[in-house]
Design a protein around this nucleic acid. Structure first.
Lengths: 223, 223
DNA sequence: TCTTCTCTATGCGTGTGCTCGTCATTGAAG
DNA sequence: CTTCAATGACGAGCACACGCATAGAGAAGA
């Protein structure tokens, strides 16, 4: 899951970035409204977080243009003012949720999870395929009841796979959602990480779940 | 446990702040009603204390708006008048308890403990994991029956851990609940204090309780 | 003054993320 | 069936960030 944070206060921004990264999100941080809009328009993000007070372009304007371009990515508004009309304006402009600063990081994370949960599939809080279970709330993964320890990146990759079970995932799709902006296209990192995952999830099991679609990408499914 | 105190009399306010800090609470003090409301809305607090006589925005109003925004944090009302109707109004507006000034500090602390005990988990007064026991009422900690002396900060950290056993606690989450507002994100204080706790709690024991989740944070659990 | 506590600063070891090179597999053409 | 090119699998190894430990500065209180 990739998140764009448009926030001009460096301190707040990097605090949020770090918190999200510890929760295994890929995070791009942008301190300028106009530039942030450009990035948001790429459509690579699963969630966009916008501060209302921005230099160069106010947050509400960013949001409005985004919606005008038919980008339906969930948007979470950050605002210093708790004034009710500000919030109403934000929600009217197409925000999905708002949060007033200062906020508790737990609260931010909870809302992020909530926004991502109401995905296209209207999915529940837990993902399961065969005897493989992933719980995003606790970031716990088990197979056949047995706990599996994953690194942050491995977890991010697996979560992406499990959110798109039975679909072919191309390498560009994977890098777009699991890695952040400064991903280098000309490497085989993805292959390497898929291999790591295989070792921890499929190695020694009767039914393999991770399948290679030669010439296209990978797919998570039961045969 | 983090507490917000909204009290315009500087002397009373800092007296309360100090008393609470000695009991290992993280305390933010605010002398203005409107600003206090903003802070309270962040959801960062485990308890909020409001004086009824405030400049800019009366205490009852702060409380009412808080409840309107669905913030369910326990609220303790401070009031100079002991008039019955005042109290009734306060409780009607959604306060959980009240205290008339002047009050004995012991009484204040007792009520704070009582309010925090009825947490979201409907928790008992005592926390236990393996042979480690923590009693918030006496702030006494033992492991295997043996008393363990902790400093104020160490205790606050351990209490936070024990209230969230078995869950991964990220550094931002920890700083949000154990340190107060002016916490500096870019230091390793948390690591240092976890290390202190390890020395006093896990050092030399067969079963370790504090575990590092690399890239994420820490977790308190039995293996 | 001396002690206690909180926090800063720094050096060090190690796991993670990643690169690279080589080997295995696949599928198509001869 | 053999050959060959394209594609992917995977082990080895490197660099760096992360977390640990420890020393000491600074503040507050006895």
């Amino acid at each position: 899951m990739r998140v764009l944070v448009i926030e001009d206060e460096t301190k707040v921004g990097s605090f949020i970035k770090r918190a999200l990264e510890e929760e295994s999100y890929a995070v791009d941080l942008c301190e300028d409204g106009a530039q942030g809009l450009d990035m948001a328009l790429s459509g690579s993000y699963d969630l966009i977080m916008i501060d209302l007070m921005l230099p160069s372009l106010p947050g509400l304007e960013v949001l409005a243009r985004l919606r005008k371009e038919k980008i339906q990515t969930p948007v979470l508004i950050l605002t210093a003012q708790s004034k009710v009309d500000q919030r109403v304006k934000g929600l009217d402009a197409g925000a999905d949720d708002y949060l007033t600063k200062p906020f508790a990081i737990d609260e931010l994370l909870a809302r992020v999870r909530a926004l991502l949960r109401r995905g296209p599939a209207e999915s529940p809080g837990i993902f399961q395929i065969d005897d493989l279970v992933l719980n995003p709330a606790t970031r716990e993964v088990t197979r056949g009841g047995q706990r599996i320890d994953l690194t942050v990146k491995e977890y991010a990759l697996l979560e992406y796979f499990m959110r798109h079970t039975g679909r072919v995932l191309t390498r560009p799709m994977i890098s777009d959602h699991v890695w952040n902006q400064d991903f280098d296209t000309f490497t085989n990192v993805i292959d390497v990480y898929v291999n790591y995952l295989r070792n921890k999830i499929d190695r020694g099991r009767a039914r393999k779940l991770i399948h290679t679609i030669r010439g296209s990408g990978y797919m998570l499914k039961v045969d």
